[in-house]
Design a protein around this nucleic acid. Structure first.
Lengths: 170, 170
DNA sequence: TGACGCATGTAATCCGTTACATGATTAT
DNA sequence: ATAATCATGTAACGGATTACATGCGTCA
């Protein structure tokens, strides 16, 4: 449900191809949602069938450019405001961290330092990301805050572990 | 893959039933991973078949208590340190925020204020959560930081929107 | 005795990933 | 020429949610 409407919303910014949309998810939306081309292409077909988007052009190599319809825009607006948002979180890095007490402290610290570096890398990647809309700017800011928070947390946790925090209970 | 090993890891802390494990995911692990009972019960059966856990007791109403085996512990340790962690993020609240430029500013601000309140509520829920292990304490701290960050971000974003940030591009 | 919480399970469906598969265009 | 990138698609599988389904124990 989310992906479908997100695709329409992105096409509301400007007409794009499935390939372009895939890139959008890799870059700007990396801190928000993920989607592969194998999921995007079939979804675009369905959205055309349902009249939420239309193909407005083509290009070299079979490129197909789509745009949102008025019905599509209405559907996106309704989705954003209506109903309950799923606030469920799925953070595999944190889930693994839950079981660090089973490891030797030096192993646990190494894991956490690597996590910290990962998030630092994500943050610097986000630097080269220009906002397409006013609300995109807000979401990019959320990305910065998220990456920075995770980086700082992992550094803090590694320090804790190196100071012996894992010993008493493990 | 993650859920299986997380179940074993939780059982390494202390023997528990599927019902207890479900509660753990609702409370302590709310900021980390989600799992319903309908996924947990079949998984426990498979884990028994594979020798990663054993049933060590029972109780009223058909309650079954499981514990991790040595093989199970080894599998958890290997999972935590080996291979690549999936750092993919899926945040529906942020995804919706991406399309706030399609709404009237007052609607967008209302949405963001509600988000802020949601995260504040999650944070206060986390207060009543006692850490079971040393590393659980670290993850709870991550939860606090995450909820606080999201709450502050949503408040900031609502302020921005009310100050007219949505106008120029929308 | 009725409501609530404990406790377990299955089935259908949906969403998402991985892998498979192909081919055109552009730059070196 | 040839490698990289652009560009689209399908199929198989696995993970996760929702809904269905049941029943015991405890407390008011």
């Amino acid at each position: 449900m989310s992906l479908r409407l997100a695709l329409v919303g992105l096409l509301a910014e400007e007409p794009m191809s499935g390939y372009d949309l895939t890139k959008r998810f890799e870059l700007t939306l990396a801190n928000t949602w993920s989607a592969q081309h194998s999921q995007i292409y079939p979804e675009l077909r369905k959205l055309v069938d349902e009249g939420l988007i239309v193909q407005t052009g083509d290009g070299p190599r079979g490129r197909k450019v789509y745009a949102a319809t008025t019905a599509g825009l209405d559907a996106v607006r309704a989705w954003v405001t209506d109903g309950q948002t799923d606030h469920g979180v799925r953070n595999e890095g944190l889930l693994r961290s839950f079981f660090l007490w089973l490891l030797r402290p030096e192993e646990a610290a190494r894991y956490l330092r690597a996590e910290s570096e990962h998030w630092a890398g994500m943050r610097s990647r986000l630097e080269g990301c220009a906002p397409s809309t006013s609300s995109c700017r807000l979401v990019i800011e959320a990305g910065h805050r998220y990456y920075r928070m995770m980086e700082e947390w992992a550094t803090w946790a590694a320090d804790e572990v190196e100071a012996g925090a894992l010993e008493p209970a493990g």
